[in-house]
Design a binder for these strands. Sequence first.
DNA 1: AAAAGAAGCAACCGCTCTTTG
DNA 2: TCAAAGAGCGGTTGCTTCTTT
Length: 264
Amino acid sequence: MVRAPCCEKMGLKKGPWTPEEDQILMSYIQKHGHGNWRALPKLAGLLRCGKSCRLRWINYLRPDIKRGNFSSEEEEIIIKMHELLGNRWSAIAAKLPGRTDNEIKNVWHTHLKKRLLNSDIQKRVSKPRIKRSDSNSSTLTQLEPTSSACTTSLSDFSSFSEGTKNMDNMIKSEDIESVETIMPPIDESFWSEATVDYESSTMMTSNSWTISNELAPPQYQFNSVESFQQQSVDYNGSNDDHDGMDFWYDIFIKSGESIELPEF
DNA sequence: AAAAGAAGCAACCGCTCTTTG
DNA sequence: TCAAAGAGCGGTTGCTTCTTT
C-alpha cells in the first residue's frame, strides 16, 4: 500500500494544538460525528491530517476523558493488567474508563515501571517459569533462575503477550473482571516447589495445579482435569496455532488437583 | 539566580489490521 | 482474491516544566 504523504508535504500543520483548533474540532465532531477521519479536517476547516485530529480527539478532547492524577487503584490495575497483557495499552485502557492508551503508556514509562522494578511484584515475575521460546515454536523453555532473569522478566512478559496477540477474538479485556481472579498472589513456595522436566515436557510439581476455567474461552474450558488433559491431547495433534493453549497453560492456578502437560 | 539535567506528557511516526470495492 | 484506503496501535520523539546543583 502506498503511504500517504506526511502532513508537512501536504502543507498541513504539525505540533501542539491551539485552543482555536480544539474548538473547531470539538464543534465539528459534536455536530457531525467522526465517520471519516481522513475527510474530517477538510470538512471542519482544519489544516491538520486526519490522524492528528483523531489522536487529539481520543487523547484530549473526548468528553468522557478523565483528567488528573491516577489513583492508586488505577495504578494497581495497570500494573496487574500489564503483568497479564504486556504492552497492550489499548486493552489496558479498556479497563480504565476515561483513561487513554497514550496516558496509560506514559504513566507506565514514567512512574510504574520504575516502581515495579523495586517491588515484590518484580520478584514474583522474575521467578523461573514456563515461557515460549519463540513466537513460531510450541516448545517450552525455562527462564534461568539467575539475576539476568530478574532483569529481563518484564520484557519476557511483553514477548509473551506478543505471542498472544492473535487471541483477541477469544479473550476480551472486558472478560477479565479482576486479574486477581486468574492470577492470585503467588507466594515463594509456589515457585520453589514447581519444576519442569523439559525432556518429556511434563510439568511436575509437589503442589497441585489446575487451569483457570471461568475466564478461558469456551474451547479451553474444562469440567475436569481429565477433560483438560483430553483437550491437550487433541490440541497436541492439531496443526493450529498454539498460542491460545499456551496462554492458558501460563495461567495455571494453584489448586487441589494435579495435571500433566501434554508432550509437545 | 542561572544553568544543567531529569521527568512528564502531547504528539508524531511507521507499522499492522480491517474494511471495501 | 487482491489491492487500496482508512483506522488503530505501540514505539518514539521532542517540547515544556520541574528539580537539583
